[in-house]
């Protein structure tokens, strides 16, 4: 058994799969405020793989990293409730406007601070962009191998991690030297529920900004129960070069955003009666659409 240092990368995203009526503004842009913020679904699959890896290798540690505003600390709490040992929130106004390249640079700099790390695990993609780029780009920035589309971490020994990948028409089992970055596909097992004991232990965990915003006296809490402190890292903490962050570090620019408009057709409505269906089938046959 090897004691592993495991890092999970997770993102808080707007719930784009459940878009309500008020989610779009009149000008066609997305009203982020109207969409609930959730733990990115595939990052939950990733968290489950990480927790299993930790459980199967006693003495391992699991750290969760997220990047975003103070409220993204919620993602770290959800990780703590399920078995993460600690978490870091990368937060700074200077990250605003980062595309995948700038984001992966920032995350890679944060991971560097935690090195040596054995395994980095994240979801394949986030539902707000569906790009699947940040995982491979973090791996490239760290100059380590990547295994994408993982369905299961099969085994680990002193040197290698073995992973089952889910591809378009089959599966592949890949072994890679560590450190390695793994991106997890939605076909992997769902994440376990919160653990009641951990929920009790960590429900007051906060990052400093959250404590300050709530006007709480956090100094004594931090001292008595240091595990309640979710660390915040700024650009300076991760020693990142601001040139490579935010808009200046992002080669892609958004030129235009439009809302999706489908041309509605005049739909002819039929019942499921034999007469209606017979009429339709005859029509399709006579105009050579079928047959």
């Amino acid at each position: 058994m090897k004691q592993l240092k495991i890092v999970v990368l997770a993102k808080q995203v707007p719930d784009t799969h459940n878009v309500g009526k008020d989610a779009m503004k009149a000008d066609g842009t997305v009203n982020r405020g109207a969409l609930p913020a959730i733990f990115n679904p595939e990052d939950l699959n990733a968290l489950e793989q990480a927790i299993r890896l930790k459980e199967n290798n006693p003495g391992s540690t699991l750290t969760i990293i997220t990047m975003g505003p103070a409220r993204a600390a919620e993602v770290i709490r959800e990780g703590l409730y399920r078995g993460a040992d600690n978490g870091y929130l990368i937060t700074d106004r200077r990250f605003a406007g980062s595309d995948t390249l700038a984001t992966s640079y920032a995350i890679s700099m944060a991971v560097r601070k935690l090195m040596p790390v054995d395994v980095i695990i994240c979801g394949r993609q986030a539902i707000d962009g569906d790009t699947a780029q940040v995982g491979p780009q973090v791996a490239e920035k760290l100059q380590i191998p990547q295994i994408t589309y993982a369905e299961e971490i099969v085994s680990v020994d002193d040197k290698e991690l073995t992973v089952k990948r889910r591809l378009e028409r089959g599966i592949e089992i890949v072994a890679s030297q560590m450190p390695v970055l793994v991106t997890v596909h939605s076909s992997a097992p769902p994440c376990r529920a919160r653990n009641a004991k951990l929920l009790m232990k960590y429900k007051h965990a906060r990052c400093i900004t959250e404590w300050q915003e709530a006007g709480e006296d956090y100094l004594h809490l931090q001292k008595e129960r240091p595990y309640l402190n979710i660390m915040e890292w700024s650009v300076d903490d991760i020693q990142a070069d601001v040139e490579w962050l935010g808009l200046s570090g992002s080669p892609t620019k958004v030129k235009k955003i439009e809302s999706v408009v489908f041309k509605a057709k005049e739909s002819k409505v039929l019942t499921s009666s034999e007469a209606d269906i017979d009429w339709l089938m005859k029509d399709l046959i006579s105009n050579h659409t079928i047959g």
Binding site: F262, K263, A264, K265, S267, K268, V269, L270, T271, S272, E274, D276, I277, D278, L280, M281, K282, I285, I290, G291
Partner: peptide, 28 residues
């Protein structure tokens, strides 16, 4: 999906699909 359909059949698949098969066999 009905808003972009040329024809909309309101009903159960278990009813509609066998009727389509039957009608096609009869008329083709």
């Amino acid at each position: 999906i009905n808003s972009i359909a040329d024809y909309t059949i309101i009903g159960d698949l278990s009813e509609v699909l066998p009727r389509m098969i039957k009608s096609f066999r009869k008329n083709s």
